[in-house]
Design a protein around this nucleic acid. Sequence first.
RNA 1: UCCUCAGUAGCUCAAUGGCAGAGCGACCGGCUGUUAACCGGUAGGUUGUAGGUUCGAGUCCUACCUGGGGAGCCA
Length: 464
Amino acid sequence: MEKVTVKQLFRDADPYAGQEVHLNGWVRNNRDQKAFGFIALNDGTHFNQVQVVYEREFLPGYDNIARIGVGSAISVTGILELTPGARQPFEIKAKKVTLEGPSAEDYPIQPKRHSREFLREVAHLRPRTNLFTAVFRVRSLLAYAVHQFFQEKGFICLHAPIITANDAEGAGELFRVTTLDPQHPPLKDDGTVDYSSDFFGKKTNLTVSGQLEAEAFALAFKDVYTFGPTFRAENSNTPRHAAEFWMIEPEIAFAELVDNMNLAEEMVKYMIEYLMQNAPTEMEFFNQFVDKGLQERLQQIAAAEFARISYTDAIEALKKANQKFEYPVEWGKDLQTEHERYLTEKVFKKPVFVTDYPQEIKAFYMRLNDDMKTVAAMDLLVPGVGEIIGGSQREERIEILQERMADFKIKADELKWYLDLRSYGGVKHAGYGLGFERAIMYFTGVSNIRDVIPFPRTVNSCDF
RNA sequence: UCCUCAGUAGCUCAAUGGCAGAGCGACCGGCUGUUAACCGGUAGGUUGUAGGUUCGAGUCCUACCUGGGGAGCCA
């Protein structure tokens, strides 16, 4: 008797034909008739269920097996029979079924459709459903694909700090990290909170980006990336924002904006191809039940060149557009969601890099172009999801960086170490941030970020 | 934070201001191959919360809570 997984059997059942096998798993469905019954068994190793057939004639505890509820954990010993022509390629004729862990009658996951909203309320049980078993297997595979992509290229992975004293990253509201008593914080003479007696002796926050630290490593290892959690305390209530999410941030030295875009494009295509090859069952499921045109679209994207357009040209294209926008199109103003959607969904109908934005609307570290008006920034917009990548060539010229920091009212002494990188062997370098969850949304068609994070944290919601 | 829609059985939903219902699920029974099986039966409700209008409120009004969608912020 061999202990096998459902994955092994679906990969190749032939060697097991007629053999006795042993399986563990959870009951997805159980229906009995007078003389026999069927259990759909999922053991977590594969998207599909294996069908277990049990017959009254051969199993003394038939009535007890027939009463095993959905969600119960069982172990099964039986003979594998190939069933060509049936809806499933094989099934297990049970010789013994043992109830390992019963499931109560009020088990919330039923063999029927549930709304995503309801399943979010039972996030501890939803990975047992078809949709979420597919989503989270894909999430795991994609994480692996990201590491593989960069490691194959010789990139060094660095774990950027989660707690940071950088107050100047400028990417949104911060979560404060403190051990001070919020009821009675120590006060200075002027009545303000005395952070010098806090754990780190200063104000600290959860990171909003590992970029600055990645730059330091890029100027030692040349090509590096971070892949870790990121925290934003924004009061954002949208299907695309979470307070805790994961970002992939490569940083490459001796490189310009075009190298940056080439890397981003290659990475996105690699991720798609990896999924097509390693999660065909899940991708087929998404294509059929989540987003009808998904697979065809992804195949086209993997094959086609991404569009590239400068911000200035994009503004011209939008002005000429035969469409009314709620927000006016004007050089110097940031692109609104409706503008981004128009560009990627109507003009190009594929991913598009928008580059060289006005310096006023972008971050201080982005490299000033020769026109002295725009910076070497790039956003990757994709149909349906919007911005999934934001990046830039970094300002390597210390004088200009100092000027820009002054413009943004960032104190130089807080980022002295960052300026040091320009003083000691500073060189052209670039990088970007990919929102991991947004990529998953884009590749699966799942339209709410709360459904691609195992236990999502959003404004007013931190359950589980 | 702003705009908008919604909240009725475990789930998905119906009910003209006039007796609160169906399908699925659960439970009980039937059925010789099911595939979200099928057929019959049983149980299951403070209609999100608090006020108000009315002879009478699931339905109308006010506030709040929760959730969805859109906007802003952004990845």
